[in-house]
Design a protein around this nucleic acid. Structure first.
Length: 848
RNA sequence: GCCAGAGUGAUGAAAUGGUAAACAUACUCGACUCAAAAUCGAGCGCCGCAAGGUUUGUGGGUUCAAGUCCCACCUCUGGCACCA
């Protein structure tokens, strides 16, 4: 049915469920009565608390599409259910608003980004509000608020004090289009994550955070987290721990080349050594290098090509021999040549590798290209000698074998397997070490719209932190937000801001003009919600102790290796300096599956497939939108939006609405308080006096529904929770009368999903207060199974017949009834089964 | 290449090793209606008029019993990737 048509239909049904009136009314009332406000005047440790958090959004100018609120609705359902269950609930919302999108908007419109952010926040908030989410808006935060970023800067200074923040001049990832340096995490496939431009290497002074110091803790503490395994794996992968060995190769230049390898068992197979073109060793070799000119040229050419070209896997490896330099393999004292090559990375391991072409794909390709010797030192345990030349001569063997195996040609280590050999060889010729792929966090951006890094450069004193009392260092207004592209941020042009006195010597100083990356503010925002107005501390320790950790965190999987790593790191640092108690910020994490456009592509303006939630709310209602997004499919799964399918949950809500006409007082409940004036007829009064009870099958279904909805919300099986309620409603529809207590229980179960309609019905039945602060229903565990059961008769595991019986029927009785069944009599008369398996109350399997 | 996840009707999907396809959409037929919509009723994996048979990516295995557990393979999705 078309949206237009449905509109007309709604208009015609004035008597019926009118979501427009109901939803606006209750949103206003809730706002006025502040029923969702989190009261933290009294916080007792041990009190039932639940902190449920959405990854806060970046309020972009485009506004919401229908996919954005999916996660918010889920946390809303959980938060409402927990509130009804008697928990003290914290469910806040805020804005992550520093960074490029807001800045680009500012450049385009020549307005201060603060103004742009205000506008987009207002729009965003309005869109979120009409969905009826139960946020405590008194706790709203914004990362661009100086009162907020004061504490982001404060933490940076603490890191500086702790030696975790340092200045570096190493070449970093540089996006020539965004004109800023990027962290490793901001580079995807060698391209800028933001704009897709291939990233270049650029030597630049920058602030870097020593996140690598936390690598092992970040890795080990993953174990205890209730996070989806794929996300944990992504983090493990990103941290990339490898156990290996460092071995020093002496050179004729008097400088050792230290190499890192995970395959020290192949040490006897080294036929050359390769160092990264950026390696400092090259300078240290000095005049020993005879082909200086070519080397300089090679280095220059390598630095020019972008990372994306350089790291393409199938790209031929380029290298150059350092003439005049030889390294000595400590294992056999053999002299081997030294190369520089683009396939060796300067910032991993030691920036130098020992090349074993017989047992490493890259070394093999390089050796083939430059015609270098290949020496086999590992043999497969399975394959015998068949692949090798006559007389055991392995000199010209060019077979590539990369697995573990048995050592050959390795003096006294020959015959050991790879694993044993690694330990022994490392001990003899080097040392065991652990390396991580994780890189230190490049923390400077040469852009305007970010938190100023609170340090002052003084010619006399060097880097001087801004005194804590002078925080925040407020981002000044500028005329132009354009990045300069020179490696300086636009802030450098505001001399009145830049030029300050050195806090130490009172001499002339200059403010740092780099700003922090977008991920800074979001690394600790969940702590600020606990205590949003505190000007004396990042968070009050008592409040932190009460609310931490976040019990349930919901957001997109794309943050696996960025926000979620940065936040964990930041938190651990705050733990180390005593600001927070626990080592992990987010106890349980759940990913939202994306909602795709009807054409199966990502929802985007570009494809014209964006569905706006406002339209859906206007046409079908917020409650319907909420139910639909929860009913679509498994929560964490990517799913295609289909406006046509919304009608199903809308029909369900209307059925629930209409059921109110059949509601009667329960047995013994006395006169009905009022059912909205609808049930005052004679028959109704009579039944009310006598009371209504459910028949056994419905009563069982009713209790099963309470159980299933309760369980499913906890395990995020929202879709099955809703279908269970649909089953109950379909059953209740068949009844003449419904006990009021049953109906009100249904309303409560539905309340987290459809808060407006249920609140209206709650009121219509004259119940006190709000359904959302009423208690969560409990089920009668003695009434979960039917008295009469259906037993299946199987032959060799295939269902052939069935019979009904009383619950609790004995095994013997079941067996007898099965043998008496028609199918068995017709087909197996007179035959005795070789085996009979009886599953109590369920199945009899006869094996013939 | 490495790591992880997923393959079930026309569609979204459901199923503690125990009746596969619940719930919902679409579709077909019927009731109501001058008519349409809404609503209600019936049907709806595949083969078959029916009785019945058969079905969870492919092939094997474990089990009385497999969508579910194990092995191999195919396909798709996501993450990582010259990380030594």
């Amino acid at each position: 049915m078309s949206v237009l048509y449905y509109n007309a239909y709604i208009m015609a049904k004035k008597q019926a469920y009118d979501h427009r009136k109901i939803e606006k009314k209750w949103q206003k009332k809730w706002e006025a009565s502040k029923i969702y406000k989190t009261d933290d005047k009294t916080l007792k440790l041990g009190q039932k608390k639940f902190y449920v958090l959405d990854m806060f959004p970046y309020p972009s100018g485009e506004g919401l599409h229908v996919g954005h609120p999916k996660g918010y609705i889920a946390t809303d359902v959980v938060s409402r259910m927990k509130r009804m269950s008697g928990y003290k609930v914290l469910h806040p919302m805020g804005w992550d608003a520093f960074g490029l999108p807001a800045e680009q908007f500012a450049i385009k419109n020549k307005t201060n980004p603060m103004i742009g952010v205000k506008k987009t926040v207002a729009r965003f908030k309005k869109q979120v509000s009409i969905i009826g989410l139960d946020y405590d808006w008194d706790r709203e935060i914004n990362t661009t608020d100086p009162k907020y970023y004061k504490w982001t800067q404060w933490t940076f200074l603490k890191m500086l004090e702790a030696g975790l923040a340092y200045e570096s001049h190493e070449p970093i990832n540089w996006c020539p289009s965004c004109k800023t340096g990027l962290a490793n995490e901001d580079v995807e496939d060698g391209k800028c994550e933001r704009c897709g431009t291939p990233v270049e290497k650029k030597p630049l002074r920058q602030w870097v955070i020593r996140i690598t110091k936390y690598a092992d803790r970040l890795l080990n503490d993953l174990e205890a987290l209730e996070w989806p395994e794929p996300i944990k794996d992504a983090q493990r992968n990103w941290i990339g721990r490898s156990e290996g060995a460092e071995v020093a190769f002496k050179t004729n230049a008097g400088v050792d080349i230290s190499v890192f390898t995970t395959r020290v068992d192949t040490l006897f197979g080294v036929t050359y050594v390769v160092i990264a073109p950026e390696s400092k060793l090259i300078a240290e070799f000095g005049d020993n290098i005879k082909n200086q000119k070519e080397v300089a040229e090679f280095i220059k050419n390598t630095s020019k090509i972008s990372d994306i070209e350089r790291t393409a896997v199938d790209k031929p490896k380029n290298g150059l021999k350092l003439e005049g330099v030889v390294a000595i393999n400590p294992a056999n004292n053999e002299e081997v040549p030294v190369f520089i090559a683009d396939y060796v990375l300067a910032n991993y391991g030691t920036g130098a590798v020992m090349a074993v072409p017989a047992h490493d794909t890259r070394d093999y390709a390089f050796a083939k290209k430059y015609d270098l010797p290949i020496r086999e030192v590992i043999q497969s345990e399975n394959i015998k000698d068949e692949k090798r030349g006559e007389n055991g001569d392995k000199k010209n063997v060019d077979e590539l074998f990369v697995d573990d195996g048995v050592l050959i040609n390795s003096s006294k280590f020959s015959g050991l397997n790879s694993e044993e050999a690694r330990g022994k060889i490392a001990k003899t010729f080097g040392k065991l070490v652990t390396k991580y792929k994780l890189r230190d966090w490049v923390f400077s951006r040469q852009r305007y719209w970010g938190e100023p890094i609170p340090v002052i450069h003084c010619a006399e004193c060097g880097v001087v932190p801004v005194p804590y009392k002078d925080l925040p260092v407020v981002l000044p207004r500028v005329k132009s937000y354009e990045p300069t592209g020179t490696g300086e941020s636009p802030l450098a042009n505001i001399l009145s801001w830049v030029n300050v006195k050195c806090p130490k010597c009172k001499g002339p100083g200059k403010r740092e003009t780099n700003t922090m990356p977008q991920w800074a503010g979001s690394s600790w925002y969940y702590l600020r919600y606990m205590d949003p107005k505190n000007d004396k501390a990042l968070v009050d320790p008592k409040k932190e102790a009460f609310w931490s950790p976040v019990d349930f965190y919901v957001g997109g999987a794309e943050h696996a290796a960025r926000h979620l790593i940065y936040a964990r790191f930041w938190h651990k640092f705050l733990q180390d300096i005593g600001v927070v108690k626990y080592g992990e910020p987010f106890k349980k994490l759940q990913n939202v599956g994306l909602i795709m456009g009807e054409d199966g592509r990502k929802m985007s303006k570009r494809y014209g497939n964006v569905v706006n939630p406002d339209t859906i709310v206007e046409t079908y209602g917020a409650d319907t939108l909420r139910l639909y997004e929860m009913f679509m499919g498994p929560f964490d799964q990517e799913i295609t939006w289909k406006t046509d399918n919304i009608i199903g949950v809308r029909r369900f809500l209307e059925k629930v609405w209409r059921l109110q006409e059949r509601v009667m007082s329960d047995a013994g409940a006395g006169a009905d308080k009022k059912t909205g004036g609808k049930k005052t007829n004679n028959s109704g009064a009579k039944i009310a006096a006598e009371g209504v009870v459910l028949d056994n099958p419905t009563e069982i279904l009713f209790n099963q529904t309470i159980k299933k909805v309760t369980d499913d919300i906890s395990t995020l099986g929202f879709n099955t929770a809703i279908s269970q309620m649909m089953i109950l409603v379909n059953q209740l529809e068949k009844l003449e009368t419904i006990p009021k207590s049953v109906y009100l229980t249904l309303i409560k179960l539905l309340a987290p999903f459809a808060p407006h309609a249920t609140e209206e019905l709650w009121m219509l039945f004259g119940e006190k207060g709000s359904v959302h602060t009423s208690g969560w229903p409990e089920y009668d565990s003695s009434k979960l199974v039917l008295n009469t059961i259906t037993v299946m008769v199987q032959v060799n595991g295939k269902v052939r017949d069935q019979f009904s019986a009383e619950l609790g029927i004995s095994k013997e009785e079941m067996e007898k009834l099965a043998l008496d069944s028609k199918y068995i009599k017709d087909n197996f008369a007179g035959k005795t089964p070789s085996r009979i398996i009886v599953v109590p109350n369920k199945i009899v399997n006869l094996v013939y």
